[in-house]
Structures are given as structure tokens and as C-alpha cells.
Computed example of a mutant assay.
Amino acid sequence: MNPLKRILGFARPHQKYLFLSIFFNLLYSLLNIFSVATVLPILGLMFGTVEEVNTSARPQYSGDFSDFFAYLKDAVYYNIQLSIDQKGVTYVLALLCITTAFAFLLRNIFRYLGAFLLVNYRVGITKDLRTAMYKKFLVLPVSFYTEQRKGDMVSRISNDIGSVEGGIMGALVDIINSPFMIISSLVTLFILSPQLTLFSLLVFPVMGFLISVIGKSLKKQAYQAQAELGNLFSIVDETLKSAKIIKIFNADKMLLRRFNQSTENWKDYSIGMSRRRELASPTSEFLGSVTILLITWFAGVEIINHRSMEPETFIVFIALFFQILDPAKKLSSAISSIQSGLPALERVSEVLDYDLQVHEAPNAAPINDFEKEIEFRDVGFYYDTD
């Protein structure tokens, strides 16, 4: 069975936590846009760039969806102007700041609830996966344990499942949160300035290509590291079970050489994997910083030459784009973590998919009682040729 399909099968009983988490993350994304959008009139009032709105006629919505956001902006500034006329600029500025603070509070509460529910989702799947593997251990034939090293099996049920939880299940928070944040922020950026948004997106395909290259190289290193860790556990298991024999034959130096070689191999694989994984986040951050500088240059030319954007709109645009960089960086790190966790999931799946080999005949006759004797005919014993 495909390892990812197996995870989805274990996830089915815990779907309620996932759906609730998605709901709270949607609210978090909406409030994130609202909290940043409320900064726009605050900056306009501070810079004195908010033009006085004619309050004699309320803005009217044409019914066309393309005019909805323009109508929404006019309606907001209309109500702000009414409040300014009635209670003054200072009062309106204080009210907007309080509203923004409350939006930030609600946003972070929803963010916590979304992450909290995903913890239940992640831990529940990990628990079921470990239980399924232990049940498999109980039904596997004795021949399996003669072919496989016990230390490697201990490593699979402990370290490999731990890597699945930390690498794949742990990345679920960012895999679910980040797309909502990126999409909602991009929609808002398009509303603020379509030209500037299209210009800023030019670097994203380059970023995605570099992260995918790093992620693919992680998978091979991670599998080798997990396999070597299983070998290391096997050496420890053999040493503890055969301590007397090791002492009798003075084999401690030989085993120490094997252990040192195994730990050295594991260290090399782990260092190589960590280097590539840690490279993903700085790469995305650097590309994002370059994008910010290019946006600043492009917007600066537009503002200086054509006065096509108010200063407060540009500041909010940059703030929103910075909010995209963090989830984009987390998303790239999550993809790298999943790539490093997949080899561990494949090792766990090898045990869960192992054929029991001992199959009962479809028309086997049941034996209800024992009458005389059991006779073995033409039964022999031999060692494997290798």
C-alpha cells in the first residue's frame, strides 16, 4: 500500500479534529486580512492623506462583483468621515486602534485553536500507527524474526514512528495553515495593487523549483539515516543478549569497531540530511527579501513618476507581503520535513505490509479431538546456503 494512503487510512477516525482545525484557520486568515486592512485608515489619518469624503450621499453598490471591493472601501471611509465629523479625528484614531487590537487578539485565539486541534489529530494517528505495528509483531511468524534483526524492529516502532510524527504529522500544522494565509493575503494584495502583485509573484516559481530540488535530495539521505539507526540498535541488542559470549571470546573490540562504524555512517547521513533541510528556509527567506527590494524599487518608480499609489497603501502592501513570506517559508520547511519523514513511513509500511506466509487451506478440515498420534514423514532440516 502507498505509505501516504496508509496515513490517510489511519487519519479517518480523527477527521473531526482536522475539519475543526480548517474552520478555525479560515477564521484566522480572514481576521489576519481584516487586522491589516484596519491599519490602512489609521496610517491615512496619521499621514493626513485621507481626503474628506462627501457625506451627503451614502455610497451605492452597483451589484457588479468587480465593484464590490471599491464599494466596501468607499463605505468604510464614508463611516469614518461621519465619525470624524461627529467626534473628531483623535477619537476615530483611538477607536480604529482598539478595533485593530481586538482583531489581532481574536486572530491569535483562532490560530491557537487550529493548532491545538491538529495536535489531537497528529497524536491520535501516531498512537494508532504504533498500535497497528505492535499488533503486527504479535501475529508475525517466527521465521520473520529469524530473517530480521530485533534491534531494527525496535528502531522501527520507536524511532521511525517518531520520525513520522515529527516529520510528516508535525508538518501538518504548516501544511494546513500556510496555504490559507498565502491565498488570502494574495487576494488582498491583488485588491490593493494588481500590477505590483503580479510583479512580486515573478520570483515564486524560482523559489518553488529550488525548494523541490532540496526536498528530493532529503529523501535519500533520510532513508539511509533511518536504516543505519536500525542497524545500530541491532548491534546494541546483540551485545546485551550475548554479553557472556562476548566476554568468553574477547570479542568486545570487534563489536566496538562495528558500533563505531555504524555510528559514523549514521552521523554522515544525518549531517547531510540536516544540511539540506536547513538550507530550505534560508533560501526561501533570501528570495523573499530580494522580492521585497524589487517591489520597493518598482513601487517607488510608480509613486515618484505617476503618483499611482498612496504611501499608506504601499506600507500596508509591504506588510501583507511580509505576512506571505513567513507562511511560505514554513510551507517550504514543512515540505522538506515530509520528504525526510517519508523514508521512515516506508520502513514502517514494510512491516505492516509483510505477508504472513502461513496461509490456511481454503477447504481445511477442522480437527475436533486428538485420537492417536501425529506422525512426521519426510521432514528434514538444513541451513541456508548463504
Rank of each mutant, 00 (worst) to 15 (best):
L4T: 08
L8F: 12
G9C: 03
A11D: 03
K16R: 12
L26Y: 06
L26S: 09
L26P: 04
L30G: 13
F34R: 08
V36N: 10
A37P: 04
I42W: 03
G44P: 03
E52I: 05
D67L: 01
F68N: 02
V76I: 13
S83N: 12
L96V: 04
L96K: 04
C97I: 15
T100G: 09
F102A: 15
L105T: 11
G114Y: 01
F116G: 01
L118D: 06
Y121L: 04
G124F: 01
T126I: 01
K127D: 10
R130K: 12
T131K: 13
M133S: 06
F137M: 04
P141Q: 04
F144H: 09
T146N: 12
R149F: 06
V154P: 01
V154I: 15
I157G: 07
S158M: 11
I161S: 10
G162A: 08
G166W: 05
G167A: 07
M169K: 02
G170N: 06
V173P: 00
V173H: 02
I176G: 00
F180Q: 10
S184D: 01
L186N: 05
T188Y: 14
S193C: 07
Q195P: 00
L196D: 03
L196T: 10
L198K: 00
F204K: 03
F204H: 04
V206W: 06
G208I: 09
S212T: 14
G215D: 13
K216M: 13
S217K: 13
L218N: 11
K219R: 14
K219N: 12
K220M: 11
K220R: 14
Q224L: 15
A225N: 12
A225T: 09
A227V: 15
N231L: 13
L240H: 05
K241D: 13
I246F: 09
N250G: 10
A251K: 13
R258Q: 14
R258M: 11
F259Q: 11
S262D: 05
E264G: 01
N265M: 11
E278G: 15
L279H: 01
A280T: 09
S281P: 02
S284A: 15
S284L: 13
S284V: 14
I292L: 14
L294T: 04
W297L: 14
W297Y: 14
A299D: 03
A299E: 02
V301I: 14
H306P: 02
S308Y: 04
E312T: 04
F314P: 02
V316F: 05
L320Q: 08
F321G: 00
F322T: 09
L331P: 03
S337Y: 10
I338T: 12
A344P: 08
V348P: 07
S349E: 13
D355M: 03
L356P: 00
Q357M: 10
V358T: 10
H359G: 00
A364Y: 08
A364V: 11
E371R: 12
D378W: 07
D378A: 11
D384Q: 12
D386Q: 13
